[in-house]
Amino acid sequence: MTETPLPAALAEIVDLFATSPPRDRLELLLEYAQGLPPLPARLAEHPELLEPVPECQSPLFVATDVDDGDRVHVFFDAPQEAPTTRGFAGIFHAALDGLSVEEVLAVPGDVTSRMALTEVVSPLRMRGASALLARVQRQIRERVSAA
């Protein structure tokens, strides 16, 4: 079975995790958690514009935007005491922000299982990561069809 190709940034991240020894994968995830940018003021002041992702064990909120150049922007908010959730958000921010609508929608839903994180994080915790991607894609789809 051939796997759907990934956008370059995402492919790099997947590869980075897959080629790191299991012990280092958590450290890597933590780096993504720490690299998650804070919300821009317009969203930080209006939390109602963010959509909750209840599949994550800890509170996670997501918002998306498509700019005039057809580029997708993603925004995530999760508490500091939920670094795993922040880590997933950090990965998707690094991987998806700035891609075209088409590229974001083409990301296969199984990408989180290719990241070799399941064995160190546990399958239950990985569900939140898949749900996060699904929310981003649904929001973008709704935005595009409304436009």
Binding site: L26, E27, L29, L30, A33, Q57, S58, Q80, E81, A82, P83, T84, T85, G87, E119, V120, V121, S122, L124, R125
Partner: peptide, 21 residues
């Protein structure tokens, strides 16, 4: 619950035991 929380900082000397893994 959060498998990374320990890595962000823990009580000095504490070891981590993860329920799931």
């Amino acid at each position: 619950e959060d498998i990374l929380l320990y890595e962000t900082g823990h009580i000095p000397g504490a070891v981590k035991v993860d329920w799931h893994t």
